[in-house]
Design a protein around this nucleic acid. Structure first.
Lengths: 208, 208
DNA sequence: GGGTTCTGTAACCGACCGGTACGGTCCGCT
DNA sequence: AGCGGACCGTACCGGTCGGTTACAGAACCC
């Protein structure tokens, strides 16, 4: 009698998955710090014990969310790569174009990974750790692509691109949809040109 | 008898000022969301009523802190401008160099304004409003400087610089002191060169 | 049919959150 | 001398935070 035993009951996803998806949506909209566990389980139509059975703590739920978001990030990168196989320059441009396009979406709120790093400055937070880890790997990947296109200073080029990419994410949050992201494509083209122009004056450390 | 009436009593700053300075330090280190009012007043050697009498609410204290941080930002910009009067190109480079240098400081945690925008996605937060306002003005100022150096597309140049500047701030938090900020100077030089090189192919909208 | 797995109910915890009513102390002014 | 206001601290408020417990019911598989 205590249990009004779940109205439809069937075709419902398991509680852990509902919680994960609901938390993802809420975290994206309001930031993981602003969303409480009570709100998550209430919105998901689940209960706190289910959350803690599946994830152990709110911090670990955040880490799981970060992994999901990182997977999306990698998917975007790989889509850009497969869109122009064996043309690293076109891959980079396609990736940037994708980021700019999604930053123009109404509800976009930058990069979940970067936001989490900002929200949790303490270096021991599991969500922050996961986010930083993926960002390091992104840096490596960009370096590989910079090398693949025979950039004169691949590390500098990759880091310059990283500055622009991260800039796209936060400026979206600061300036809204009409923000500086619109200049990203042109900036990337200029940087790529500067790093791959033939026989320039050159003359800095060859390791860059 | 209830009041052990303040040991030294003299030469102490007023409570409001102690609270403001203490809050600033704590907000910078841990983020304004992670710091509670109890921690602020305890660290400042003050009490909560003093905080609420002087600032009205925690949100307004955050807004006051943002104003302080914005003043520092403007001071940095004006220092760069007066360091190279009537040479907007050198001013931009000096400003970027200053940002990179301070991003290499041990305890640096990016830009307080940008961080606050990330921490408070809701558009009605007084701290966020103040931060966005100053960032808009920064955008205007960069456009003026871009025009002053006769850039071919001053708006695009200014926005490109903004992407790099914001990129410096967050990548500092993601990658630490050895991060992509080191590539900023070179990237800015490349962008300035691309926008001011004489008689290039040109051919885009003249309003940019 | 019996065990296992998954889930919800309901109550609870200590800590901390932002915020406030009230009373005291000290000062300058008249 | 006396008074008012600026300033500040003590003590307390209700609410919410993340996290936990014991228990009960439903569905599934053998």
């Amino acid at each position: 009698m205590t249990t009004p035993p779940d109205p439809p009951q069937a075709d419902r996803l398991p509680a852990a998955q509902r919680i994960r998806e609901t938390a993802s949506a809420l975290f994206l909209r309001h930031g993981s710090r602003a969303v409480g566990v009570d709100e998550i389980v209430a919105t998901a139509g689940a209960t706190k014990p289910s959350l803690y059975r599946a994830f152990g703590s709110k911090d670990q739920l955040i880490a799981a969310w970060i992994e999901d978001q990182a997977a999306l990030m990698w998917a975007g990168l790989e889509a850009a790569e497969s869109a122009a196989p064996s043309d690293p320059r076109a891959q980079i441009l396609a990736y940037i174009d994708g980021l700019v396009a999604q930053s123009e979406a109404k509800a976009a709120r930058g990069c979940a990974l970067s936001n989490t790093v900002v929200e949790y400055p303490r270096s021991d937070h599991p969500g922050r750790l996961a986010a930083v880890d993926h960002k390091e790997r992104l840096r490596k990947r960009l370096r590989e692509q910079a090398r693949a296109m025979n950039a004169r200073k691949p590390k500098k080029l990759a880091d310059s691109l990283l500055l622009l990419i991260e800039g796209i994410f936060i400026t979206r949050q600061i300036y809204g949809t009409g923000g500086p992201a619109g200049a990203a494509r042109g900036a990337v083209e200029a940087l790529l040109a500067a790093h791959t122009r033939e026989r320039a004056e050159d003359g800095e450390t060859p390791a860059d």
